Amino acid sequence: MSIQHFRVALIPFFAAFCLPVFAHPETLVKVKDAEDQLGARVGYIELDLNSGKILESFRPEERFPMMSTFKVLLCGAVLSRVDAGQEQLGRRIHYSQNDLVEYSPVTEKHLTDGMTVRELCSAAITMSDNTAANLLLTTIGGPKELTAFLHNMGDHVTRLDRWEPELNEAIPNDERDTTMPAAMATTLRKLLTGELLTLASRQQLIDWMEADKVAGPLLRSALPAGWFIADKSGAGERGSRGIIAALGPDGKPSRIVVIYTTGSQATMDERNRQIAEIGASLIKHW
């Protein structure tokens, strides 16, 4: 067993022997301040990774656009098919120029040779490549099948209805392509620590998230040296922004954090800054 596999296998073990965790309302004060600064709703939840206990939450059962955070769930569904012998990570998928959609920095470079399922998941999570996500959605049967996968996990809230990039439209009061912070946090925890996926697939999923290259201005910008984070960000229309993450000190994750916002007129930089400040408060009061 590799060191990384050992780390993920012992996530519940280490967490069980940690000192009790206590909620700190100071972080919620910052979440509410972010709402004021952005002029928009902000949803927040913080779960203990081992027990699933909610440590703090704000608007945990209000719907927010998922945006690209759905790509972690998508690759979880792909990995479940791999575990069941219905898919192979090494299978190569070929596609054409007509398949390319807006923001496809990886797939646009491989029109000639195609990409493997493993490479597509890596591109979808680490670079948020939209064509990679659409190609992977095709392998599982489309958005409705991802929703069905989530329902089978016990998540009857999260739903995907459309493809990239239309799913980022974020129309107010439109339930399409949305989740709730509580539902997303619980589902992410199941994917990373539950028995739904094999140990190898859980490790692969967290490795992809740990290698995320496009979430630097968010929670990662607030992390002290030595902290662990595996995350996936999302951005959408109407001032929408979000991030889902597993993080913790001492090089291992111990909490799940989900943050979503929508309806702001603020710039992307300002949305990023507010999420980073929430992260800084979380870490300060850990």
Rank of each mutant, 00 (worst) to 15 (best):
M1D: 01
S2E: 05
S2M: 12
I3R: 08
A9L: 07
A9P: 14
F13L: 13
A15V: 14
A16Y: 08
L19V: 15
L19W: 15
L19Q: 15
V21P: 05
F22W: 14
F22E: 15
F22N: 10
V29D: 14
K30N: 07
V31I: 11
D33G: 13
A34H: 03
A34L: 08
E35T: 03
E35F: 02
E35H: 03
D36G: 15
Q37A: 15
Q37T: 12
V42Y: 06
G43E: 00
Y44Q: 01
Y44A: 02
I45N: 03
E46C: 07
D48S: 08
L49C: 08
N50W: 10
K53V: 13
K53N: 15
K53A: 14
S57F: 09
S57G: 11
R59Q: 06
P60C: 12
E61L: 12
E62Y: 08
R63L: 09
M66N: 02
M67I: 07
K71P: 00
V72I: 09
L73C: 08
L74Q: 02
G76A: 14
G76K: 00
A77K: 10
L79F: 04
L79A: 04
R81C: 05
V82R: 07
D83R: 03
D83Q: 09
A84I: 11
G85L: 08
Q86E: 12
L89S: 06
L89H: 05
G90S: 13
R91I: 04
R91K: 10
R92V: 15
R92K: 12
H94V: 14
Y95S: 02
S96Y: 11
L100H: 04
V101Y: 08
E102D: 15
Y103P: 07
Y103C: 05
P105L: 06
P105D: 04
P105S: 05
P105G: 04
V106R: 07
E108A: 09
L111W: 09
L111G: 06
T112G: 13
D113G: 11
M115E: 03
L120I: 06
C121Q: 02
S122R: 12
A124Y: 00
A124F: 00
I125G: 01
I125R: 00
I125S: 03
I125K: 00
I125D: 01
M127R: 09
M127S: 09
D129N: 01
N130E: 01
N130C: 05
A133T: 11
N134R: 04
N134P: 00
N134F: 03
L135T: 06
T138Q: 15
I140P: 01
P143I: 05
K144T: 13
T147D: 09
T147M: 07
A148Y: 13
L150E: 02
H151C: 10
H151R: 14
D155I: 01
H156K: 15
T158L: 01
T158A: 05
T158I: 02
T158H: 01
L160Y: 02
D161S: 07
D161F: 03
R162C: 06
R162Y: 03
W163I: 12
P165F: 05
P165V: 09
P165N: 08
E166N: 13
E166D: 14
N168D: 07
A170W: 11
A170N: 09
A170V: 14
A170P: 08
A170I: 09
A170T: 08
I171Y: 14
P172K: 10
P172G: 10
N173E: 14
D174V: 04
D174R: 03
T178V: 05
T178W: 01
T178F: 02
M180A: 14
A182R: 14
A182K: 14
M184L: 07
A185K: 00
T187V: 08
K190F: 08
L192F: 12
L192Q: 04
L192D: 01
T193E: 14
L196D: 11
L197I: 08
T198A: 11
L199V: 15
A200E: 14
S201L: 06
S201P: 03
R202G: 07
R202S: 13
R202Y: 05
Q203T: 14
L205V: 06
D207M: 11
D207K: 12
M209E: 01
E210A: 10
A211K: 12
D212N: 07
K213C: 12
G216H: 08
P217F: 07
P217D: 12
P217W: 05
R220V: 04
A222S: 14
P224F: 03
A225R: 13
W227D: 00
F228M: 10
I229G: 02
I229N: 02
S233D: 00
S233F: 01
S233N: 01
G236D: 04
E237M: 15
R238I: 08
R238G: 12
G239Q: 03
G239D: 02
G239A: 04
S240V: 02
R241P: 00
R241C: 04
I243S: 02
I244Y: 02
I244N: 02
L247F: 05
G248R: 02
P249R: 09
P249Y: 05
K252F: 10
K252D: 09
S254P: 07
S254E: 13
R255M: 05
R255Q: 03
I256L: 11
V258S: 04
V258N: 02
I259C: 08
T261L: 10
T262C: 10
T262F: 05
S264F: 04
S264A: 09
Q265A: 14
A266P: 04
M268Q: 08
D269F: 12
D269G: 13
E270N: 08
R271L: 12
R271Q: 10
R271E: 05
N272V: 04
N272L: 02
Q274E: 13
Q274I: 10
I278Y: 01
S281D: 08
S281C: 12
K284C: 10
